[in-house]
Write a protein that binds this DNA or RNA. Structure first.
Lengths: 352, 352
DNA sequence: CGACACTTCTTTATCGTTAAAGTAGTGTAG
DNA sequence: CTACACTACTTTAACGATAAAGAAGTGTCG
C-alpha cells in the first residue's frame, strides 16, 4: 500500500497525500480527512520511513558504536549510564538510537560493514580502540561523529575526561600518604588479549588511549616524587573483570609486595582487594588500593573503595548534545574535558 | 557519491559495481579490485544503506518500544537485563536494534508517529500499557512483532511469565507461614498517575495487564484461604520507585497494621522495609514483606528480600529468538510462559 | 561441429517518497 | 479592473540502490 495508491483512490495527486501527512496547512481540512479515511480503509499507515529517508536524505537516527559486542554494554554499568545520558538527549531531539550490531567474526575481528550499512545521520563512537576497522568504516562515511573516551582523532569531536590528570591525582594521593612501593593493574593496552607484565615500550604504544594516558599520569606523578618508573610493575589484564584483578594481584604480590596498588578500573581494584583479603593482607592497613570510575559497588565494598569519580551519564549527555547540534548544522559545544574528582573512602591509608 | 558515479568512472554498469560489493562471485577479481580502487579515490564508501533498504524492502533493524521515555529504561535493572538478552540475539543475527524515541509530549501522551516513522523490519514491544496509541501505531504497521510482559493481544506473539500464578505462589507462602492480616502495595494500575487505595472495580479494570494479573493471583490465594478480599487494602503507587513504597507504607500501616505486605515489585518492597525499619517495626519479626522481580539489590538488602524471581535476560533472549525466526519466515518458538520461582530470604517469617 | 554450460557483464524496471516549481481559481487592495 | 497575494492543489524529477532477466564470449564434450 503506497501513497500513490491512496492518491488514486481519493482522486488526487500523490503529493497531496504526502502533504496530508507532512504539511496539513497545504490542503483543506476536509480533503485531509477524506484521505485519512481512505488510508484507514485500505490499511495504509502513513508514509514509508525508508522511502521518506531516501528522498529527504536523512534518517533521524543516531548510530552507536561500542567497543565490544553490544550485549556486553548492558553488563557494563558505565556504558549503561552513558547510554542513559545519550538517550535522554536523542529522545528529546526526536532521534532514534541505533545500536549497531558488530559481533566478532571467527577471526575475532568485527565486521566493518556494520558501520557502512547503518542507516543513520551520525555516529557516537564509545570507547573504541584506535585501530578497529569498524571505526575506520564509520569515520569513512563522513557523517557527523562524536568520539567518547577514545580514540582521539584529529578533527573528530571528542568527549572524555582528562585521564592523565586524573591518574596523576590518584597517584599523588598515595604519595602524600607516604607510599613508595607501588604496583599498577591495568586493563588492556591493545586488543591482542595479552596478559602479564607490560614493559614501558608496550605501555607507550598502547592502542587504547585511555590506558596509555592513565599510565602516563601515574608515571608523571611517581617520577616527580623521585621514584624510578621502570621498577614499578605494570600488570596488564585482557579486560576489566574482577576475576582479572585477582589474577593480577596473585602475580604481583609475592614478588613485589607493594604497599599501594593503582588500578585502572574499580572492577580490577575490587578484584585486588578480594585477593589480598583472602590472603591475609588487610586493606588499607597492609596495602592501599585505589580504583578508577566510581561504580556503584565501590561504596558498598569492604572496605569502601577510594577511587576517581567520573560522571558517565554526563558524558552521554554531552556527546548527545554535541552530535545533535552538529546534525542541525550548528557549531555546538565542543571538546572540553569533563571533570573528575578523587573520592577518598576506606581503601587507602598511610603505609604500614 | 553514488554507485552510478563509480560505474561511469570505471566504465561498467551500475549493476556491476553493486555486485562488486554484494556478490563478489559475479565479476572477475581484477575488475572488482579496480572498482574498489576507484571508489576509494572518489571517496565512495559502499552502497547507501537507505537506497539499499528501499530496493530490498528490508532494513535489517529491529525496533524496540518501551513503556516510558527511553532514558528511563537504562535506570531500570530489569529493562537493562532484558535488552542484554535481546541484543545478544539480534546481534548474532546481524540485526540492528533501534531504540524508538517517544518522549512524552506536552499532554503526557507519546507521539504515535514515532512508531510509524521507524525504519524497521519488526518490533519488540516491552511492557507497554494496553491503550498506548504508540502501541496501536506499531501494530498497525503489520510488521512481525513480539510483545513482552504486556499487553496480551490476540494474535500477537507474547513473552512473559505467568504473573497470576507467581503472585498466587507468593501469597501462599505467607499464608503457610500463618499470616492473616495482609496489605498490598501495587505499582500503577492505569497510566493516569493516581496514588492511593484502589477499590476492586479499579483493580479489575487496570489497563496494565501485569498489575491486574498479580492482584488476581493474590486475591485467588487469599480467598482460597477464606479471607475477604475487599478488606485487604491495595495501595496503588504511580510508579515503582523505592520512595513510593515508603509512602505506601506510611499510608497503610497506621490504619491497618498488617503482618504481611505483598509488593508488586522489589523496589516497592524495599521502600516498605525502609519505612517500617525507621518506624520501629522489625522485618520480618513484626511484619513480613515480599517483593517481585528479584533485582540484584534484593540479596544485599537488610534483611535480604524474599521475592519472586524472574529471568529478565531470558525474556529478552526469547523475544529476540521469536522475532528473528518470524523475520526469517520460519514459524519459530512461540508463547510459553517463562518460569518463575519463589526465593525465600530473610524478609518473611511467621506472624508475631 | 553443434549443443550446452559457464562466466562475466548489461538492461530494464522499480522500491516509496518529497523538494521545488508551477497552475488555477479566488479574494483584495489600489 | 488590474495587479498581486493567497489557497489548494499538480507536475516533474529525482533520492540510491538491486532483482530479474538477458546477452556476449569462452570452453567442453560427444
Amino acid at each position: 500500500m503506497t501513497l500513490a495508491r491512496i492518491a488514486e483512490e481519493v482522486g488526487v495527486s500523490a503529493m497531496t497525500v504526502s502533504n496530508a501527512y507532512n504539511r496539513p496547512d497545504q490542503l483543506s481540512e476536509e480533503l485531509r480527512e477524506r484521505i485519512f479515511e481512505t488510508a484507514e480503509q485500505l490499511g495504509y499507515h502513513g508514509p514509508d520511513p525508508v522511502g521518506r529517508s531516501l528522498r529527504r536524505q536523512r534518517t533521524d537516527v543516531v548510530g552507536v558504536l561500542y567497543s565490544n559486542p553490544l550485549s556486553y554494554a548492558f553488563d557494563d554499568a558505565a556504558a549503561v549510564s552513558f547510554l542513559r545520558g545519550l538517550s535522554s538527549v536523542t529522545e528529546e531531539a526526536d532521534l532514534g538510537l541505533l545500536l549497531v550490531p558488530a559481533a566478532r567474526g571467527v577471526s575475532g575481528e568485527r565486521d566493518p560493514r556494520a558501520a557502512s550499512q547503518a542507516a543513520v545521520d551520525g555516529f557516537v563512537v564509545y570507547s573504541m580502540s584506535d585501530e578497529e576497522p569498524l571505526l575506520k568504516a564509520a569515520l569513512g562515511r563522513r557523517l557527523p561523529t562524536v568520539v567518547v573516551d577514545q580514540p582521539l582523532k584529529e578533527g573528530v569531536p571528542f568527549v572524555g575526561v582528562d585521564d592523565e590528570a586524573a591518574a596523576r591525582m590518584s597517584a599523588e594521593h598515595l604519595l602524600h600518604l607516604g607510599h613508595e612501593r607501588f604496583a599498577i593493574v591495568s586493563f588492556a593496552l591493545s586488543p591482542d588479549g595479552r596478559e602479564g607484565l607490560a614493559d614501558p615500550p608496550r605501555q607507550e604504544q598502547a592502542s587504547f588511549r585511555v590506558s596509555r594516558l592513565r599510565l602516563q599520569g601515574y608515571r608523571a606523578a611517581l617520577e616527580d616524587a623521585g621514584l624510578v618508573w621502570c621498577k614499578v610493575p605494570v600488570y596488564e589484564c585482557p579486560g576489566s573483570a574482577r576475576e582479572l584483578g585477582r589474577r593480577a594481584a596473585e602475580a604481583l604480590f609475592p614478588e613485589n609486595s607493594p604497599t599501594a596498588v593503582l588500578a585502572l578500573s574499580d572492577q580490577l581494584a575490587l578484584g585486588v582487594i578480594e585477593w589480598a583479603t583472602e590472603h591475609g593482607l588487610s586493606v588499607p592497613e597492609d596495602v592501599s588500593v585505589i580504583g578508577f570510575d566510581d561504580i556503584p559497588e565501590a561504596t558498598g565494598a569492604e572496605p569502601p573503595l577510594t577511587t576517581v569519580h567520573q560522571d558517565h551519564a554526563a558524558k552521554g549527555l554531552l556527546a548527545g548534545q554535541m552530535l545533535v547540534s552538529r546534525l542541525r548544522g550548528e557549531g555546538g559545544p565542543s571538546a572540553e574535558p569533563l571533570a573528575t574528582r578523587l573520592v577518598v573512602r576506606g581503601s587507602t591509608s598511610p603505609p604500614p
